[in-house]
Design a protein around this nucleic acid. Structure first.
Length: 245
RNA sequence: AAUGAUUGCACCU
């Protein structure tokens, strides 16, 4: 069953849901029974295709198979609703997790917080962050990164930088995605110099800038007409063994 | 073996 599930997951990731369905039939035809992980993989695949309603139907069928969905199963559908902007449904499902005697986890909350941020509902995002803490869950690097991104999109760079510091104080290490997010935010508002400083800072703190980081800052410098700064940075980029694309 | 985050903006299709 594990091997079948791995294959099914692979097809689902490529959006080949028909192939995944065939494998599921084949699995059943052999007298084997799909388990929660198998169903969750398919449910996630359906959600990624934008077929959340199909996924929700399949969620109901799980029970008929004598199985119970777990937190991961719900997380996939919650994320599916979020990606369609259906926050009412997403929050409803979050409540349902609790009623099922399951526990939402950091992934559950982060998925919903992320979509609130995408919709510019930063207040709701922070509220949910508090609610998450109320459940004894701590935000992790991804949670903070999505909120930082929400603040950057809202052009609240000061708050984004504050939050970056706050997470570090809490012992949650920003990673390259976190830094790239803030750096992009700074570049969008025309602060390539601060972006460059942050690039240096992340390197000092042991987080190596990647191609995305350099690309973002170089483009911003070019846009701001800072040719010399761009050349300096480009030379640093190549001297570190990176190959420009 | 399954779930959450960075490729903005403008232009054009």
């Amino acid at each position: 069953v594990k091997n079948y599930t791995t294959l099914i997951h692979g097809f689902c990731n490529k959006g080949k849901m028909d192939e995944a369905a065939k494998l599921l039939e084949e699995l059943c035809g052999k007298g084997l029974y799909p388990n929660v992980v198998t169903f969750s993989a398919i449910i996630n695949g359906l959600c990624k295709q934008g077929w959340v309603d199909e996924a929700a139907k399949l969620l109901k069928e799980i029970y008929g198979n004598g199985l119970y969905p777990n937190t991961v199963t719900f997380n996939s559908i919650i994320n599916g609703f979020c990606k369609e902007g259906k926050m009412t449904e997403a929050v409803e499902l979050l409540d349902r997790i609790l009623r099922c005697g399951l526990y939402p986890d950091t992934v559950t909350f982060t998925a919903v917080i992320n979509e609130f941020c995408n919709q510019g509902r930063i207040e709701d995002a922070f509220k949910l962050l508090e609610e998450m803490r109320g459940h004894g869950l701590s935000p992790d690097t991804v949670t903070y990164t999505v909120i930082v991104r929400g603040l950057c999109t809202a052009k609240e760079l000061d708050k984004a930088l504050d939050l970056l510091e706050k997470m570090e104080r809490e012992g949650i290490k920003p990673n390259v995605v976190t830094y790239n997010t803030v750096i992009l935010g700074l570049c969008i508002v025309g602060k390539s110099e601060e972006a460059r400083n942050l690039l240096d800072e992340m390197a000092v703190k042991g987080c190596a800038p990647d191609i995305f980081t350099y690309n973002t800052v170089l483009r911003a410098m070019h846009k701001e007409g800072r040719a010399e700064a761009a050349i300096d940075l480009f030379n640093e980029f190549t001297s570190k063994g990176h190959i420009p694309d």
